[in-house]
Design a binder for these strands. Structure first.
Lengths: 335, 335
DNA sequence: CTGTTAGCGCCTTCAT
DNA sequence: ATGAAGGCGCTAACAG
């Protein structure tokens, strides 16, 4: 391949150790040699072999990001934020997609327990029920931070949004618009996040005695979801409001509304968690609860780097909660 | 950290090399020892140090993906396809986002010229005009495949869609719907892909003498784009059709149409390149040219792995062209 | 079938 | 301010 330290040293009539120090700006090298070394290094396009230095220093300058999916605005925005911080720190980013598969998540984590990365960021798959594979990292003292879909543990830092609050606000918004019977479309129970959003939904209803709530468990299967929603909207006691826990389900709901020609928002109001900006162009424009995904990514990465650099975390950084934003649009407009 | 090969060997009363071979299923190790070794290895949770073996074998089992952005359905879908193939091959994936910045692209490529990865996939930034940094890889014999936004070079394999054809088809679709004056909204000239789409647009118009075309150069700035489109739609000779080269611009066009209350498709027909499935819910549903992004990702990765494994590429694999799909929806419905 | 030896390229003592 | 030597953990070549 290309030139290595030894060759560079020979070309300069210096010892490899001197060259190594010069390149790393050691104070015990004369200004003169430093310049000489750096000049030739760039000329020859020298780049230190990352494996040799990782092996020697046992650190990789690499982090891993493990996410359930990437074709999802929330995760791609978070990824963007993470990559930005990592790049600014001179770190490399490995990406792993679990496809919501617990076994895959386990085996990826297992794979990374060997020093390949200096730390990892994870958003947990929705099929994950056991957290031993995460606990292992705590024991192994490898920095790990979880975000959004977090593992609720005292020892692992996390960055989330206040899903309970946001879901309550969204539900209250529907109630304020006059909804009396609201359906909550949820995805994958067992996920902390899903439980929290449902909690907020129920909290809002509890405080409002005139309204009732229904909960519909949906899945990743669009066809099945539409069927469920179709049944929901065709029964005698049909809802006048729908709160979708994830954008995908709002899309399914829209599809059914279009199909059954149910006027939104006059007969049915809709709101959903979503990070897609084009929901503004939906027919009608979809009201959304937007999570600060990019910021979540940035903050998660920042916390990880503090851990990697062995800095002390402020108490507020250990469990960071960022506010979501309610975007009121026509789909939930009051009468 | 955890246990290493030497310790494992000592615990088994074997030489490190024997253990190494046993774990890699070498044919010259007895079934008996293999089992003994593997048993203890999993018991102790042994994972070989990746840097030591990468250093020794000078291969990293890692590829890099360099893309202009990730908050874009095309790229996140392509990424998904790439990651899928890489995972099936047991490879790790490093992700780098250039944010359409040429300098960043250059420095990332520079950074990777040292063996950190066994090969790379790149989709070129739209501010890239010089390709020396790519040529370097050809000279260094490091496998590199470009996709979608490719560098047109005889030596570098690529995977694209037939943008000329797809753009021509989309334009012809507008013409068939009765459009006489079509505006083409383009992003970032200088990009091969943009040039190709424009070419297809012009080709279609050339064959149709009754219609004329206008070209509008847009940018990444939504505000400016809307202003340009507003001007376009308010002039005396306004277009009756718009073809957006990227989804972002279609969104801008929709925004302006809503704002100016221009009825789509009766007064203005719209079509756009896009990989967002929720365009079906737009008001009105947006006609799109959809690229097979996931497949492009898969194919690109497959070609890269053939290169890495030093397999011969079939002629058809060197410059792979996959078909896009025209999704006719209401926004471009004929009168 | 298993062990011994050497070295991948770098960084870090320890000398000078 | 510079050099020499050793070793990070693994694997491949060479013995036996």
């Amino acid at each position: 391949m290309s030139v290595n330290l030894k060759q560079l040293a020979k070309a300069l009539n210096l010892a490899p150790s001197t060259v190594s120090r010069a390149l790393r700006d050691s104070h015990e090298i004369s200004q003169d040699t430093k310049e000489r070394v750096k000049k030739l290094a760039t000329e020859l396009g020298f780049e230190p072999n990352p494996f040799a230095s990782s092996l020697r220093q046992s650190k990789s300058k690499t982090i891993a990001v493990i996410i359930p999916e990437i074709e999802n605005n929330f995760f791609s925005q978070a990824m963007n934020g993470i990559e930005k911080i990592a790049q600014s720190k001179g770190y490399h980013v490995l990406i792993y997609i679990t496809h919501e598969n617990f076994e895959r998540e386990k085996s990826i984590l297992h794979l990374l327990r060997n020093g390949r990365v200096d730390g990892l960021l994870i958003s947990i798959s929705n099929s994950t029920t056991n957290f031993d594979h995460i606990e292992e990292y705590v024991n192994a003292m490898i920095p790990l931070v979880s975000f959004d879909r977090v593992y609720e543990s005292a020892t692992i830092p996390s960055v989330t949004t206040d899903d309970v609050y946001a879901a309550r606000k969204a539900t209250e918004h529907l109630l304020a618009g006059g909804c009396k019977r609201i359906a909550y479309l949820s995805m994958a129970e067992g996920l902390s996040i899903s439980a929290r959003r449902k909690q907020g939904f129920l909290d809002a209803l509890k405080k409002n005695k005139q309204a009732t709530g229904i909960t519909i468990e949906c899945s990743n299967d669009d066809e099945k979801n539409r069927k469920l929603i179709r049944q929901l909207l065709q029964q005698k006691q049909k809802p006048d409001g729908i709160f979708a826990a994830v954008e995908k389900l709002a899309v399914n709901a829209y599809e059914v509304c279009h199909e059954l020609k149910i006027p939104v928002p006059s007969k049915l109001k809709l709101i959903s968690f979503s990070n897609s900006s084009s929901t503004a162009l939906f027919d009608p424009p979809l009201s959304t609860v937007v999570q600060p995904a990019h910021l979540i990514g940035e903050e998660t990465a920042k916390v990880l780097f503090k851990l990697i650099e062995k800095k002390i975390l402020m108490p507020s950084e250990k469990k960071q909660v960022l506010p979501s934003f309610l975007n009121e649009r026509r789909s939930s407009a009051g009468k």
